[in-house]
């Protein structure tokens, strides 16, 4: 009963969530298939156990029932060891096959995306491209892309449920995984290894897009940020460069080259502020700049002394960086 309920719930409610049961790529698809195999085996065995339990409860409670002192060892051995052994060995073999499949990464020519975990955001670079972005990486649809994982501080874990199982980011070492998406779309990922105060807000987005769009993203990543177009944006840029912002953040082509916080060269186009803390719109951006501690308590950006007149300019400038 419980198990059937699960079945319904699993198929009914997963749509739209970053669900491991709604795979969009080769890695996650294998695991989803494995899950359904395991699920149905579990349902069958659970039904068996419940049937025996019910039998006992229904027929062995009567006062007249005769207690039998026999030792039905064959039953215990067959049902408790024999059948499970067969199932487990089979499942173990399937598991090994899938493990080997997950190890079957991209060829040497595949693009390599370098992801560095920070408390609490993701720095994204592409091998051979001189530029960085944050909390968002693009991959071409239908191709395997190598992802090289490092951490700048504590352990994190790189997890895109719809595309690929987790790989931890280990301090002092480099790990590799790969991503593959069969259909275009945006896939939510999140840090899965507890990493301190704001572990909850360390999400990222994997955007799978056709190869030309991916190439365009690569090109944008390697070129200077869009220069300011309006007066407000120009004043905003000035405020950015003269204020304390540039000490921590970089914007390509402006001389701002701080490496402590995320590179902001394309901040206007990002899906969120604070690695999934709030949506990326003017109001939230202003709130973040004024005092990000109210938005994402504990993060490393101190409240900024920005004049009330400067804030709209700064917002306008940052939003124009697409």
């Amino acid at each position: 009963m419980v198990a059937l309920g699960t079945g319904l719930a699993l198929t009914g409610c997963a749509g739209g969530a970053p669900s491991a049961l709604d795979p969009a790529g080769a890695g996650a698809a294998r695991v989803a298939n494995l899950w359904w195999l395991l699920f149905w085996i579990s349902v069958a065995v659970f039904a068996e156990v419940m049937a025996l339990l019910t039998w006992a409860l229904v027929f062995r409670r009567k006062r007249r029932v005769r207690v039998r002192h026999g030792q039905p060892l064959r039953f215990v051995v067959v049902a408790g060891a024999g059948i499970p052994l067969v199932i487990l060995v089979a499942v173990y073999a399937v598991g090994l096959r899938d493990l080997a499949a997950l190890g079957d990464g991209p060829g040497p020519d595949a693009p390599t995306i370098e992801v560095t975990g920070h408390k609490w955001w993701w720095e994204v670079r592409v091998q051979g491209v001189d530029g960085a972005t944050a909390n968002e990486l693009h991959i071409p649809v239908g191709e395997k892309v190598r992802v090289r994982l490092r951490t700048a501080d504590v352990l994190h874990s790189f997890w895109v449920p719809q595309l690929m199982p987790k790989t931890d980011l280990i301090a002092g070492e480099t790990r590799e995984t790969w991503l593959h998406a069969e259909r275009a779309g945006s896939y939510r990922g999140q840090c899965a290894e507890y990493c301190g105060t704001q572990h909850a807000h360390m999400a990222f987005l994997v955007v799978a897009e056709p190869r030309p769009d991916f190439d365009a993203w690569l090109a944008r990543l390697g070129t200077p940020a869009r220069p300011p177009q309006t007066d407000a944006q120009r004043r905003g840029q000035q405020a950015f460069l003269q204020g304390s912002c540039a000490g921590c953040h970089a914007i390509r082509g402006t001389g701002a080259d701080g490496r402590i916080g995320p590179d902001l060269s394309d901040v206007g186009s990002r899906w969120s502020i604070g690695a999934g803390a709030v949506p990326n719109d003017g109001g939230h951006l202003g709130g973040w700049i004024a005092n990000s501690q109210t938005v994402k308590p504990g993060n490393y950006m101190p409240p900024q002394q920005v004049g009330a007149g400067q804030l709209p300019d700064l917002i306008a400038y940052l939003q124009s960086l697409k």
Partner: peptide, 19 residues
């Protein structure tokens, strides 16, 4: 497997005794 053996040993106990 050992856990399975225990579970089925208990089930067998219940199936042969008087609850």
């Amino acid at each position: 497997i050992p856990s399975g053996i225990q579970i089925f040993a208990w089930l067998a106990t219940m199936l042969l005794g008087r609850l």
